[in-house]
Write a protein that binds this DNA or RNA. Structure first.
Lengths: 160, 160
DNA sequence: TCGATGTTGTTGCATATACAACATGAAGAG
DNA sequence: CTCTTCATGTTGTATATGCAACAACATCGA
């Protein structure tokens, strides 16, 4: 490699770094996710539940008797992730296996009485975190994030 | 618990579920993060690098000789997460330990020649994913996410 | 009825993420 | 110079995340 080529390559790298740094929405999306998740984690910690678990529990309550695969699709998560994220909720007794009416391997889950109690007890902490998050994101930011999330097509997960 | 109390509790839970479902920015932020990350993961896969790693490598290149703690702060990540996320990059040889000038336990890292090559080779895949992501997010969505991410205060991670 | 096909759940593997606790070393206070 | 304090990096633990491969079950076509 000649000096010229080395300089060209370096310029190439610098260009790449600048382009990605200036524009990458993946980097920013993940960054926002970490920061926001942290806010809710802190607020919910006293209740022994984390952000991801609280979120999943609400979804399960909303869907009411959905299978793992259905929950996964509703939440844009892999089936296997769902199976694993469900484990702590089952251990804590916030969620229960249902007697599956629908045949197949479908194994629907429902929120338990303990789960409902947790939601009611922890929702003030969620509200507090929500306020902080809204302050951090700003009005436009909140509107944009809600708008974007609520308009993701149901089958957007490439694999699944 | 009387029938009345049960109904009240149920109404309470339904209210909580509705409120969180309609408004939670944490749930949405995490959802967006999963979907967007997936897009870049797929595009970058042929190059043997994932979204998180590509992102981190660019950051390391941009910072040029930053310590783990500094990289973590720049990326709103815990120190320990940085140490661990660095491992695959070191294994692949995309990043190298520097001879630390600054004393203390500071252990700065730099991008290697192999790392620079990877960036140049993989950037077309990144661009392709970036286009897909922009289509999914929409112009406003992209603007909002960039604006939000770039305005997070440097010390926003509660713990750190 | 039987075989092909598709869905569902699980498990092995690799990585991402954070907290708590610890060891190390630097910098100041006295 | 010593003790305190602070920043840094690592490790143990727990969870989150997705892919690949597999097993189990349903359904449909021939």
């Amino acid at each position: 490699m000649t000096i010229t080529e080395i300089k060209a390559a370096d310029a190439g790298v610098a260009g790449v770094v600048g382009e990605v740094t200036r524009n990458c929405v993946m980097t920013r999306t993940r960054r926002i996710s970490r920061v926001i998740t942290n806010i809710y984690d802190q607020a919910l910690r006293p209740h022994g539940v984390n952000a991801s678990q609280f979120s999943l529990l609400v979804l399960i309550a909303k869907l009411g008797g959905a299978s793992r695969a259905e929950i996964g699709r509703a939440n844009y998560q892999d089936r296997s992730t769902l199976t694993r994220n469900l484990a702590p909720l089952l251990t804590e007794g916030w969620v229960e296996e249902m007697v599956s009416e629908r045949g197949g391997r479908s194994r629907p889950v429902v929120i338990s009485e303990a789960g409902r109690s947790l939601l009611v007890l922890a929702v003030p902490a969620w509200r507090s975190a929500q306020v902080k998050a809204q302050e951090l994101l700003g009005e436009e930011g909140v509107a944009a994030i809600v708008g974007v999330a609520d308009s993701i097509p149901p089958d957007e997960l490439v694999t699944l």
